[in-house]
């Protein structure tokens, strides 16, 4: 009963979410009474791979290839690695890559797939996992009934555990892989903290009143080391770019701390933030629905509250 975890690097480096995924895989393997194998596709230095030993990695298959992310090609590598390692459970992150690959892998392996799983399984025998459904309005338990199973893990739902042990790196031949797509250009977001992986998110809504008022919000984000985000009306108005839109049809985020500034809290927005650990809401309307979703609330005008918040957090950060 072994587990295969597909891990994704960015420019040869792994992120915190990968550590969570690896340690999650190790715990699943322990639960199933088997071992965990990792598959890395792309070029990653051996040291970077071996670092994953601390999170439970045993064997790491490294498939070096220059082929860019191609759904069919990568899925074939993952399926082959699962078959070669005798894995009965394949685990991926529930991010853009996992969403693209897991369904194809599942079909190749004749496996049932449950995506966006929250944390460890509810039971191993039968194999039952928990996930959110109806955009966060419901929790669902689903059983995977096939011999081989595929799951994707919702980020930040399993936590990171460390393990004693060393990782052994093996090479997997990826020379036969070809791509059906041509990458014309790649635009990497640099300098900024990415919304999808930020621990802290500072998000603004219509209550920010105009595009010009975003500077103090960015200042607060800067002090907190946070990513910036917005509600749908704000991106619809063009005050902020679409990729910052958090909500049902935008991004779903799960930071430790989410600041909702001038966001009334429409149900579609709440669907995008309900996995946040702690929500702080600032709104001038004491009846705004955001306060029923928030842990901490301030009723007040952002024009005055926001600079005060920035000042208070700056004081705190410099004192720490």
């Amino acid at each position: 009963m072994s587990v295969l975890v597909y891990i994704e690097n960015r420019n040869g480096k792994f992120k915190k979410s990968t550590y969570e995924l690896v340690s999650y895989g190790k715990r699943l393997a322990n639960g199933l009474g088997g071992s965990v194998t990792l598959l890395s596709i792309g070029k990653v230095a051996e040291d970077e791979l071996k670092n994953l030993g601390a999170y439970g990695a045993g064997t790491i298959l490294s498939a070096e290839t220059d082929v860019p992310l191609d759904d069919r090609a990568y899925a074939s590598l993952i399926a082959a690695a699962a078959q070669n390692s005798g894995a009965t459970l394949v685990v991926m992150a529930h991010n853009v890559t996992g969403k693209a690959l897991a369904p194809r892998v599942a079909v190749r392996l004749n496996a049932g797939l449950v995506s966006a799983v929250n944390g460890l399984p509810v039971s191993y025998q039968p194999f039952v996992v928990s996930k959110k459904a109806f955009s966060g309005k419901s929790l669902m338990q689903a059983e995977i009934t096939t011999d081989i199973k595929v799951i994707t893990l919702s980020q930040n739902t399993a936590g990171i555990e460390t393990f004693a042990g060393n990782a052994a790196v093996e090479t997997m031949d990826a020379s036969a892989v070809t791509s059906g797509i041509t990458v014309l250009s790649t635009e990497v977001q640099t300098g900024k903290i990415l919304l999808s992986e930020a621990d802290v998110v500072v998000s603004g809504g219509r209550g920010m009143r105009s595009a010009d008022n975003w500077e103090p919000l960015e200042e607060l984000a800067g002090v907190l080391g946070a990513a910036t985000a917005c509600s749908r009306p704000v991106s619809d108005e063009g005050w902020r770019p679409h990729h910052e839109h958090v909500g049902q049809t935008g991004k779903v985020v799960a930071p430790n701390l989410y600041f909702a500034l001038g966001i009334s809290g429409a149900i579609q927005h709440l669907a995008g933030i309900s996995s946040s650990k702690v929500i702080v809401a600032v709104n001038k309307d004491p009846e705004a629905p955001i306060f029923s979703a928030a842990d901490y609330g301030i009723v007040g005008d952002l024009q005055t509250v926001l600079p005060k918040m920035t000042e208070a957090f700056r004081k705190f950060k410099s004192g720490n």
Partner: peptide, 11 residues
């Protein structure tokens, strides 16, 4: 919220 049918169909 499965994000699965499209990829499966392709495969």
């Amino acid at each position: 919220n499965g994000s699965a049918v499209g990829g499966m169909l392709a495969e």
